[in-house]
Simulated scan of single mutants.
Amino acid sequence: MKVDFKKTIPTYSARQGRFDVVEVPPLQYIAIDGSGDPNTAPEYREALQALFPVAYAIKFASKNELGRDYVVMPLEALWWAPNMNSFTTARDKVQWKWTAMILIPDWIDDEKVSAAQDSVERTGNPVGLRRIRTMTLDEGRCVQTLHVGPYDDEAAILATMHDDVIPRTGASMTGKHHEIYLSDARRVEPSRLRTILRQPISP
């Protein structure tokens, strides 16, 4: 059977208008690091152009060589900046640093990832291909919610999360702001984009 991790990992579900405290298990990703405004920096576009072909090459290798099929997961990204107001009141995207990433199963090892990169290199060789790395992210306790709408409308929700919701839990922010893009921005109009907004917090 084809596994859909969005359905088997509970933290890939969130509710609009609700801020839930969740426990996120350690998860494995392929990732590329960068910085700058994702709307204008070519580095971000190049990262996506490399990550998705490799993610699909890994999926097909898993199916054909290991007999384990799964649904390729959506794009995710970690975001941070020297001043977190860059995401809320200031909304200064030039200051943003990011890690673009796609979840891969825990049965995929570095050898399979490297073989997938080699396969993509033979067919297209996107610019960011050799910047891909594997990483395990262990976020633990987090606050998350579902945002529906344009990405630039997230600021008010993040301000509420950072300045109201998290302080009321008695915790503080740790780690990096995390977004999970459940919608494909190339095919869905901005008002209908669905994005999980997640912030790790202290235990």
Rank of each mutant, 00 (worst) to 15 (best):
T89N: 12
A90H: 15
A90E: 15
A90Q: 15
R91L: 14
K93L: 11
V94P: 05
K97F: 13
W98D: 06
T99K: 15
A100E: 03
A100H: 04
M101P: 00
I102P: 02
L103Q: 13
P105V: 14
P105G: 02
D106R: 01
D106A: 08
W107A: 01
I108M: 09
I108W: 05
D109G: 10
D109C: 14
D110M: 10
E111M: 10
E111W: 07
K112V: 03
V113Y: 08
V113A: 01
A115S: 11
A115Q: 13
A116W: 07
A116K: 04
A116H: 07
Q117N: 03
Q117E: 04
D118K: 10
S119K: 15
S119Q: 15
S119N: 12
V120W: 12
V120A: 01
T123E: 10
T123S: 15
G124K: 11
N125R: 14
N125E: 06
P126I: 13
V127K: 12
G128V: 05
R130G: 05
R131C: 09
I132Y: 02
R133P: 02
R133D: 03
R133F: 04
T134H: 10
M135Q: 13
T136N: 10
D138G: 01
G140S: 02
R141L: 01
R141S: 08
R141T: 11
C142W: 04
V143G: 03
L146R: 00
H147I: 10
V148T: 15
V148Q: 00
V148F: 00
V148C: 07
P150I: 04
Y151E: 04
D152E: 14
D152V: 15
D153Y: 10
D153C: 09
D153T: 11
E154S: 05
E154H: 04
E154V: 00
A155M: 10
A156R: 01
A156S: 11
A156D: 10
I157D: 08
L158P: 03
L158H: 05
L158R: 10
L158D: 09
T160G: 10
T160E: 13
T160M: 13
M161N: 13
D163G: 09
D164V: 13
P167I: 07
T169D: 07
T169F: 05
T169I: 08
G170C: 14
A171M: 07
A171V: 01
